[in-house]
């Protein structure tokens, strides 16, 4: 259980938009125990809780590159397009994004309005 100790949660990650919270064990671009995968943003990372494999990680979220809010990677809160953007910032600056992203954001809005998909 040595690895257990190494992986002690460093703190609680909490999304500033949807309040999703989970303990994270690492912040950075190079998840521990993984050599060949690197992250393209400073991420809050948790060991993937749904697998016994110790090397598997799960990215919880990161800071919006516009407003620096800490947001989760959930589609209702943020998107990644070479950088992390929270959805409010995307909407505010929607013109800066290519067509595909614009469409995508529209789609998400529609989805979020449906009653059974709770944010």
């Amino acid at each position: 259980m040595a690895s257990e100790a190494e992986r002690r949660p460093q703190g609680m990650f909490e999304c500033q938009l949807c309040a999703l919270s989970a303990p994270y064990s690492y912040v950075g671009q190079k998840p521990p125990d993984t050599r060949s995968v690197v992250l393209l943003e400073e991420s809050y990372i948790l060991k993937d809780p749904f697998t016994a494999d110790r090397d598997k990680f799960l990215v919880l979220g990161s800071r919006c590159s516009v407003c620096s809010r800490l947001v989760c990677v959930g589609p209702e809160c943020s998107l990644f397009y070479s950088k992390r953007f929270c959805l409010p910032c995307v909407r505010e600056n929607i013109a800066a994004f290519p067509q595909e992203i614009r469409q995508d954001v529209e789609k998400r809005k529609a989805l979020a309005k449906m009653p059974h998909v709770k944010p």
């Binding site: 992250l39 943003e41 990677v73 990644f80 397009y81 290519p98």
Partner: peptide
């Protein structure tokens, strides 16, 4: 931001 859209830019990791 990348000038040309590519789904690849939507992925926050690299191999």
């Amino acid at each position: 931001l990348p000038r040309t859209y590519d789904p690849r830019y939507r992925i926050n990791l690299s191999v």
